[in-house]
Amino acid sequence: MAVKILAETLLSIRHIAKRFGDNTVLDDLSLDVHKGEVIVVVGPSGCGKSTLLRCINALEPIQAGEILLDGEPIKPDGKNITELRQKVGMVFQSYDLFPHLSVLDNIVLAPRKVQKRAKAEAEAEALTLLERVGLKDKAASYPRELSGGQKQRVAIVRALCMHPEMLLFDEVTAALDPEMVREVLDVILKLATQGRTMLIVTHEMQFARAIADRVIFLDGGNILENTPPEIFFTNPQTERARQFLNMFEFAAVKHHAPAED
């Protein structure tokens, strides 16, 4: 038997199904994520990308299959769910900072209350991380005083400060003005160079191509493509993926293109 040395599997999704009533969103989906891997998930809206991320963080219960993180099953009602969630950082499309807390308190709340870390230590780390994303001077500000791009960078720092083993990004630039998209994507690119394990849902195809180790194309609740970005973007294996990429390129011109929603 040939022994192949692969990076350790961090997250293992096995045959999961997710249904909302009669509507099947994820159907017998399996995926392995290895340590240090950056996976970008693309697909038409409604294909289940966001639901997939929400299932991984146990914000949605699944109806079949299992999700293992470091070999431990993730279930919304599981006893160790808060411990598992600490290992998975999630950043949302709408930032979701806590409006009643300052930037610094937003970041150190979970480290202090969940991980019971000392105030000084947590704040020192928060400030270091803020400095890295260029927002150290905003530590005392409140979320309402920040721009969208700044809020999203704070949200990323908030997730990082919990020392997650893996980061989930759910269309983090979709709600941003174009000129702020870049500043957020740059932060994520920097994280990739640090060897972080990340699962990224995005509509920024250029960014996907630059950052991904693997691109997952999701449609109809299934993984149709699971390939390196060079192959996915130049020579997609399925007709659906080809259509999807085409729609992207001509989105501005093809007014009669079937609206997907």
Partner: peptide, 16 residues
């Protein structure tokens, strides 16, 4: 609802 979710995603339990 997002406030609940981002709090849970950070590992805070229901009471926290």
């Amino acid at each position: 609802r997002h406030q609940y979710e981002s709090s849970q995603a950070l590992g805070l339990n229901k009471r926290q």
